[in-house]
Nucleic acid binder design. Structure first.
Length: 363
DNA sequence: GAAACGTGGTT
DNA sequence: TAACCAAGTTT
């Protein structure tokens, strides 16, 4: 055959892993029941996001949108507001799109087959397997970063887990290993083990419930795995941003485009700066005039701030300015008070600006 | 297949 | 501090 599970004691491994999980699993809010909608929401939130970060978001989200129907009918602005600060905002817009699809096409019942569930927006191979196994007990692999790390050690798999292709290899391994009696516990156990014991830097092998099955541990090579190539540095982008105010105590905010970075979130007026130096104020004025028909008197430089994303870094020079003249109304522009601002979803980068704007306003 | 897509905690 | 990491998916 020549598979990674040749000469591997599958049944004993399953037993040791699942027994440990049942005794040691964390008490997490999405484990209270197996409601497919809640499992779904939790899985989307947990993508690339820590459990501790997700817990309060999950509880708030479920109190705001307790059912699939409630989320399907909700205003997108409210949904984004509930996601504010969690990051990867397309996750929740895709989730709402998918939930509407389920409400309309499946009578509100989350599909329970790989073929159907995988068609839903935002449901990739991992999430499909997670929902199917956890909510429905279907023995499908749910291969995330934890699973690849854990199995790379246990089975001594030296494939680069950074490559998209290697995921299918791990899925193949899981199909051979997974407990048919309790796929839910098996999949979650693998992830729980990765989160609590088989951690990236210094795995706690001595307390690991399955170290007797671990080929890397046997050879003392657990710290060499998984193999993962390093990423390149993030790109720096210079931006000039503006706290633009009016005599009536309102500030100008702008809704970002429906695609791309921070899609549909709100922000303060800003422009990319071509050459760092003295042109920032002019860049802002030209932009306001040309794009929105606004003329402004730009005043003090407030401060410099930076914000790091996964793939780039904003270096923001923040100014303050007074609106002199404006024409017409636009859907993506709003003049609001600080109080009204609280209803709008802002990315963290612009939450920092709000904070500074409030301090400046006091003066 | 590589890059885009957020944020906060850890090392 | 900079790099790395966390229950990935879409384009």
């Amino acid at each position: 055959m020549n598979s990674y599970t040749d000469d591997f004691s599958i049944l004993n491994f399953q037993r040791d892993l699942v027994d440990w999980y049942k005794m040691n699993q964390r008490d997490l809010p999405w484990r209270a029941d197996q409601d497919p909608y809640k499992v779904w929401v939790s899985e989307i939130m947990l993508q690339q996001t820590r459990v501790d970060t997700v817990i309060p978001y999950f509880n708030r989200f479920l109190s705001l949108f307790p059912t699939l129907e409630a989320l399907a009918e909700a205003d997108e602005e409210k949904v984004l507001k509930a996601w504010e600060g969690l990051g990867y905002y397309s996750r929740v817009r895709n989730l709402q799109t998918a939930v509407k699809e389920v409400a309309e096409q499946y009578g509100g019942r989350v599909p329970d087959t790989p073929e159907e569930i995988s068609k839903l927006k935002g449901v990739g191979p991992y999430t499909a397997g997670a929902i199917l196994s956890i909510a429905y007990g279907v023995p499908e692999p749910a291969v995330d970063g934890n699973v690849m790390r854990v199995l790379s050690r246990i089975l001594l798999i030296e494939e680069d887990i950074g490559k998209a292709k290697s995921r299918t290899l791990f899925e193949k391994a899981v199909r051979e290993l997974i407990s048919k009696e309790d796929p839910s516990s098996f999949n979650q156990a693998l992830m729980e083990l990765g989160a609590l014991i088989c951690t990236p830097k210094s795995p706690a092998c001595l307390t690991c419930p399955v170290h007797e099955h671990c080929r890397a541990f046997e050879q003392g090579r657990q710290r060499e795995l998984p193999v993962k190539e390093k990423k390149t540095k993030v790109r720096h982008v210079d931006i000039a941003a503006l706290i633009l105010w009016r005599e009536d105590g309102k500030y100008l905010i702008h809704k970002r485009p429906k695609e791309g970075l921070l899609a549909n979130l709100w922000e303060f007026p800003n422009v990319p700066v071509k050459k760092r130096g003295q042109s920032e104020i002019e860049d802002l004025k030209v932009f306001l005039e040309a794009e929105w028909g606004i003329s402004a008197e730009i005043g003090d430089h407030i401060s410099n701030l930076d914000h790091v994303f996964s793939h780039l870094k904003w270096d923001i020079q923040l100014f303050e300015g007074r609106c002199i003249y404006e024409i017409g109304d636009k859907d993506d522009l709003k003049w609001v008070t600080f109080e009204e601002m609280e209803a709008y979803p802002f990315p963290v980068s612009h939450q920092k600006i709000i904070k500074l704007a409030k301090e400046v306003a006091v003066l």
